[in-house]
Design a protein around this nucleic acid. Structure first.
Lengths: 226, 226
DNA sequence: CCATGTCCGAATGTTGACATTCGGTCGTCG
DNA sequence: CGACGACCGAATGTCAACATTCGGACATGG
């Protein structure tokens, strides 16, 4: 399972712009529904409108923004239906990823996953930054998809990944205590199933993990009747 | 289940370019691995390079072409691993779509699906154009996703839809007799399950349909050792 | 007072020119 | 003779200007 040394990935200016805008959306500087005007972003980021367009196309692929014909692109909202859609799809995706990963997983992969969970445990114990915990959570599932090694599946995951990230941040913002307690335990269970030989067991475990996250997120969204 | 009257969809020049190039790929005018040069396409289609870029971005989203940094975009190939990847993902996607559609399906939806299958039967009986049969097959599954009404799920399907289309055309080209026999029967079975009330049954039926297609496609690809 | 039609500002869609990078070829040196 | 390195053509990445379209404000007529 030898990997290439470093493999610097050559990127365009558009990708940099996408990273900056994505970060701004996660930070709440572009709240849901906010318009992302091309000329405005172009002069703020110091690049041309063409590159901004390219970057917005990336974010559109990730489902973070919505765009239309001669209409300003806007940040997506977080309605209960959106959560239902994303997590229903994620359940199917994560289930397949876990099942596929089980048949390809190696010892180094296991230690990598365990290291991530250990860092999660450290974060929850030390009352560290909540967003760090979310990053680790996402990184765990990224690794799962990498192990599964299905390019199409990985792309499908990337198409909802940023939305999941956004949802989790929102969930963490207003009361994330239950998340904190269960996240380490559930991920450890997934690793254990991954090391077993029962495909149905891993898939069920992965799906239940997603289902639990959905439930928790919907619950934290419900009292929000402002 | 009232729909809007017509809803003309405003599109850009880039989308038109994407349609033209996609058609050309399906027709075999751009064989697997062929380079799609932007300047060349631009003057052939009579539009600017920017619009061609936009169109190629659409096809890249559909997974029909591969692109890289300062590297010509090329048509994807049809290797056995590609088939495995696409159909493994499609199994998960179609399973979810069928299960979701079951809980939302209406009488008009059923008649629409039945009409499509009837047209399939007419094509198979009359020894009509094989590509027409593929179009109907794709249209059937499009309808399923429309009924499921999960936008994220639909987008995930669209990300593999064109690849499935390409595979099916290839399969149809070199001997498609088994496909012809089973396609009508399997789709009718799916409709019947859709009208039932057992979610696991529909999902299993949809998954088996995809698995059968994968098997058949791989078989028709194997003797191809040229 | 409400409905309708027209006009206008602002944003996106489109275009062609310029800058950057890639792959290969040619030449040179060990 | 083989390997290394610089050059060069061609293709993509980036940019700023022009054309088109949208939504609303305003005026007008019923």
């Amino acid at each position: 399972m030898a990997r290439t040394v470093a493999q610097v990935k050559r990127r365009g200016v558009g990708d940099d712009a996408a990273d900056l805008v994505r970060e701004a959306i996660f930070d709440g500087r572009f709240p849901p529904g906010a318009p992302l005007r091309e000329v405005e972003l172009a002069q703020q980021l110091g690049v041309s409108r063409g590159s901004v367009r390219e970057g917005l196309a990336v974010l559109a692929r990730e489902g973070l923004i919505r765009t239309g014909w001669h209409r300003p692109t806007t940040v997506i909202g977080i309605e209960p239906e959106d959560v239902e859609e994303v997590y229903a799809l994620r359940e199917a995706l994560d289930g397949l990823a876990a099942r596929t990963a089980q048949s390809r997983i190696g010892a180094s992969d296991v230690s990598h996953l365990l290291a991530l969970v250990d860092r999660m445990a450290a974060e929850t114990a030390g009352r560290g930054d909540a967003t760090a915990l979310v990053h680790l959570d996402i990184a765990f599932h990224d690794t799962l998809y990498t192990i599964a090694a299905n390019q199409r599946l990985t792309r499908a995951w990337q198409a909802v990944r940023s939305q999941v990230h956004l949802f989790q941040i929102r969930r963490v913002r207003d009361g994330y205590l239950p998340y904190r307690d269960s996240v380490v335990r559930e991920h450890r269970q997934i690793i254990r199933s991954l090391q077993g030989a029962d495909p149905q067991a891993v898939e069920r475990m992965a799906r239940e993990h997603v289902a639990a996250a959905r439930q928790s997120l919907l619950a934290s969204l419900r009292p929000d009747t402002r």
